[in-house]
């Protein structure tokens, strides 16, 4: 592999799109990166020959070779640590962790190396790597496979965290993450992997890291969510509209650094906010969002902020999973609570 080769943008002759699911868009994003940048590599368990347990890397080893799309043993600390070693030497690794819950053996490497090398070396080195991990509950898998532990990483200075909820954002955020000179963790909502399709541009484009997206305009209350919870929030908003409540919806998309402006602007307009996440309440990202609203928009508030979240228990096995996860009904309850305060 020619290290000195420049990153080359392949210009698109004309704007074309493909109709893709989230997992297909992730695949297409990696394909685009491998095509346009010789320093991009992918490492992970069963990602090469087998194409990945969720098929996210299907066809990539075939097309780009086993030197660039590398099967690893079951060794998460090894996958992440090796990626750090590649990254500080000029490569751009994408490390796949099969499920976010499998990341714990690698947490030490992320906490002690991935996120800290930049500062530890006084800015001499950066770690331009991406960690991809499917996360979240709702697919009837047991606890560890269903974890939503984003705040373990948003609490870690030195790493950015993104979480797309649509195919377009999945590809755009992945490419932006790879082009970012710092390490980025991309959480991919497993439950939404194949839930919807949309037109996704072929070739390279980015979705800016640190920018949320207003999904829907509204006037009475701001709903803030990300990942698989977007579907729940959208359904809740529809139900609330039938009761005459106008909801504005924000898809946060980046969990660190959070887009403070989009939150402040919306809450200052509506005066009310409901934050929805599937992670446990205590130590959840909702608390940081409450703080942001407090810092930026306190005097605009017409009601206390409501959080609709998972409970402070490990994700239960399937019979109780729906009781654990926020549902449209629970979100509507939260909406009514702030609107009728």
């Amino acid at each position: 592999m020619a290290m000195e080769m420049e990153v080359k943008d392949i210009p698109q002759k004309k704007e074309t799109t493909q109709f893709l699911t989230i997992v297909q868009a992730v695949n297409d994003g990696m394909k685009t990166l491998l095509e346009t940048d010789d320093t991009v590599m992918i490492l992970g368990e069963d990602i090469g020959k087998n194409g990945g347990v969720f098929r996210a890397t299907e066809g990539l080893q075939e097309k780009f070779g086993a030197d660039r799309v590398i099967d690893t043993p079951l060794a998460e600390a090894g996958i992440i640590g090796t990626s750090v070693g590649l990254a500080v030497n000029g490569f751009k690794p994408i490390a796949e962790i099969q499920f976010l819950g499998f990341i714990y053996p690698a947490y030490e490497q992320i906490m002690t190396h991935v996120s800290r090398i930049r500062m530890r070396t006084m800015g001499h080195f950066s770690v331009p790597m991406v960690i991809r991990a499917p996360y979240g509950a709702g697919i009837r898998s047991p606890e560890i496979h269903s974890d939503s532990t984003e705040t373990l990483f948003t609490h870690m200075p030195g790493i950015k965290v993104v979480c797309p909820s649509t195919p377009y954002d999945a590809k755009g955020l992945l490419i932006a993450a790879m082009e970012d000179p710092d390490p980025v963790l991309m959480l991919e909502p497993m439950k939404s992997y194949r839930a919807k399709r949309e037109e996704v541009p072929t070739g390279k484009y980015t979705v800016e890291i640190g920018k949320g997206k207003k999904v829907k305009e509204g006037t009475d209350v701001t709903l803030i969510a990300w990942g698989a919870m977007m579907t729940v929030v959208e359904k809740a908003a529809e139900q609330a509209e039938k009761k005459g409540i106008s909801c504005e919806i924000i898809d946060l998309r980046t969990l660190y650094p959070i887009d403070r402006e989009i939150i402040a602007e919306s809450v200052q307009k509506t005066g009310r906010a409901v934050i929805v996440h599937e992670a446990q309440l205590t130590g959840g990202l909702g608390n940081d969002i409450v703080s942001i609203i407090n810092d930026t928009s306190f005097l605009y508030l017409r009601a206390p902020i409501e959080r609709v979240t998972g409970f402070d228990v490990p994700v239960p096995f399937f019979a109780l999973e729906e009781d654990f996860l926020p549902t449209p009904a629970r979100v509507v309850e939260g909406i009514e609570k702030v609107v009728h305060f």
């Binding site: 079951l74 819950g101 499998f102 714990y104 053996p105 047991p142 606890e143 560890i144 496979h145 239960p316 096995f317 399937f318 019979a319 109780l320």
Partner: peptide, 24 residues
Amino acid sequence: KGKGGSMHIADLNKGMLGANGIVG
């Protein structure tokens, strides 16, 4: 109690300390 599932069966009375969702 139906809260662990296939990968988390344990029965301490039988000395079965538990199945495990994490390799190793």
